[in-house]
């Protein structure tokens, strides 16, 4: 039965749900490699650029890239603490976002920083990427922790 929210003007409530079957295509390997504890990026041998998130095709050369393992060590490029978010992350609040500058990678990687004391976090601090043992098959299966 239709739920009525207001009579004047007449406002009705309409729920809407959908399930997508989304393919990660050639970047699927990033996620499957995580289960063997490996953090993989892609590299263009033509222009020597390494990408994480991985790109199967180099945007500079349109050459096909190759998979390379990376150390997962890096530094905080910038950070934020979130006290509000989109609907599906409200349950996680507050949480910390960082762009990390990873060894051997030319792009910055957006991830969460898991730390008990956000107040001491500074740009330039060393981090290490961690891999979830309980994969959701999303980019949130990896995150950063301070490397002290």
């Amino acid at each position: 039965m239709t739920e009525v929210y207001s009579i004047d003007p007449l406002i009705i409530k309409t729920p809407y749900e959908i399930t997508y079957k989304h393919s990660y295509g050639k970047t699927s390997r990033f996620f499957t490699a995580l289960s063997s504890g490996k953090l993989m990026a892609t590299r263009c041998e033509h222009c020597k650029t390494t990408f994480l998130p991985p790109r199967s095709d180099c945007p500079y050369c349109l050459a096909e890239t190759k998979w390379v393992e990376i150390s997962g060590k890096g530094k905080i490029h910038t950070f934020s603490t979130l006290y509000f978010s989109g609907e599906r992350f409200l349950k996680d609040l507050p949480f910390q976002l960082v762009y990390v500058d990873l060894e051997g990678v030319d792009t910055l990687f957006l991830t969460r920083l898991k730390t008990k004391d956000m107040k001491k976090v500074k740009v330039g601090m060393k981090i290490r990427m961690k891999i979830s043992r309980d994969p959701e098959w999303r980019s949130s299966d990896v995150w950063a922790e301070l490397d002290e």
């Binding site: 996680d92 991830t111 980019s139």
Partner: peptide, 29 residues
């Protein structure tokens, strides 16, 4: 919150959105 989520769908939904998709977070960084 749903409106903010729709706006955040205008970020990469494979890589950036699942981290905590929220435009104010991106701009804060």
């Amino acid at each position: 919150a749903k409106g903010n989520e729709f706006i955040a769908l205008a970020s990469d939904t494979d890589w950036d959105f699942p981290i905590g998709g929220f435009y104010s977070g991106y701009y804060a960084l």
